[in-house]
Amino acid sequence: MKKYNTKTIPRATAKRLPLYLRNLTILDSKGIARIKSKELSEITQVPPATIRRDFSYLGELGRSGYGYEVAFLIKVFSEILDSNEENKIAIVGFGNLGKALANNNFRRNQNLMITCVFDNDPAIIGQTIAGFYVYSMDDFKQVIQEKNVKTAISTVPSEYAQEAIDIVVNSEITAILNFAPDRVEVPANISIRYIDLTTELLTLLFFDRNYKKTSLAVTS
C-alpha cells in the first residue's frame, strides 16, 4: 500500500475522513462494490465537489464516469487513519457514559485501548467496576505517566469540565476527546475535539425530516 503524506491533507478534509470510512465500511458490508461521488454525497451530506476535492489530496482514487472502488477506498482511509502504534486511553468520569465507552473498548481497532478510568466520587474510587479499577483524579498524573497514556476521553459534565481538563492537561496528555459541549481553555499544543450528543441528535432528526431516503442510505 502506498504511503500517504498526511501533513499535506487540509484540516477540514482530515475531519471528514472518518465519516467517509464509516459509511464506506457499511456499504461494503451490504455488498456495494462501487460508488460515485454523487451517491456518496447523498449518504454523507457532503457535496460531491467537496468529496472529489478531498479524495484528490490522496491521488487518483477513482476514474471519471466509473466512480470509486469501495474496498480500495476503505484500504486507503484505513491506512491513513489507523496507526500501527498502540494508543492507550484514559477515561475521565466513570458514570453511565464512561462505563459505556469502557465496555465498548474500541473493539474495531485493537490499537485503541482503554487503559485506566478516573472519577472523583468516593463511592466508586478504589472499586473495580465492569473490569476497570477506578482511580481518583488526585492520582491522575501519576497513573497516566506510569501507564504511558497520551489520550483522554472526558465525560465530565460542562460545569465541571474545565477543572477536569486542567488536571488532564497538567499531566502531559496531548489529545482529548470531550463529551461536554461547552468549550474549555487548553494550551495551543493540545489537540481537543468535542462531541455534543444533543447537536448530533438534532442534526440526525433534521436530515430525517428534510432529505429523501435513497437505496444507499446508511447512518453517517
Results as ranks from 00 to 15, higher is better:
L61C: 12
L61W: 06
L61I: 11
R63Y: 14
R63E: 15
R63K: 15
S64F: 09
G65I: 11
Y66T: 14
V70F: 06
V70K: 09
V70T: 13
F72R: 14
L73W: 07
L73E: 01
I74Y: 09
K75T: 14
E79F: 12
L81E: 05
D82G: 09
S83Y: 05
S83W: 01
N84C: 04
E85G: 11
E85P: 00
E85V: 07
I89L: 10
A90L: 07
I91P: 10
I91A: 08
V92C: 13
G93V: 10
G93Y: 09
F94V: 06
G95H: 06
L97V: 14
K99R: 15
A100S: 15
A100I: 08
A102T: 02
A102I: 06
N104T: 10
N104A: 12
N105E: 01
R107E: 14
R108H: 10
M113I: 14
V117S: 01
F118Q: 00
N120W: 01
D121L: 01
D121I: 00
A123W: 00
I125Y: 02
I129H: 05
A130R: 08
F132W: 05
Y133R: 14
V134Y: 08
Y135T: 01
D138W: 03
D139C: 11
F140Q: 03
K141M: 11
K141W: 10
Q142W: 00
V143R: 12
I144S: 06
E146Q: 15
K147S: 08
N148W: 07
T151W: 08
A152V: 13
A152K: 10
I153Q: 04
S154Y: 03
T155A: 10
T155P: 13
P157G: 03
E159V: 12
E159R: 14
E159L: 09
Y160D: 05
A161Q: 10
A164L: 05
I165R: 03
D166G: 00
I167N: 08
I167D: 01
S171W: 04
S171H: 04
I176T: 07
F179L: 14
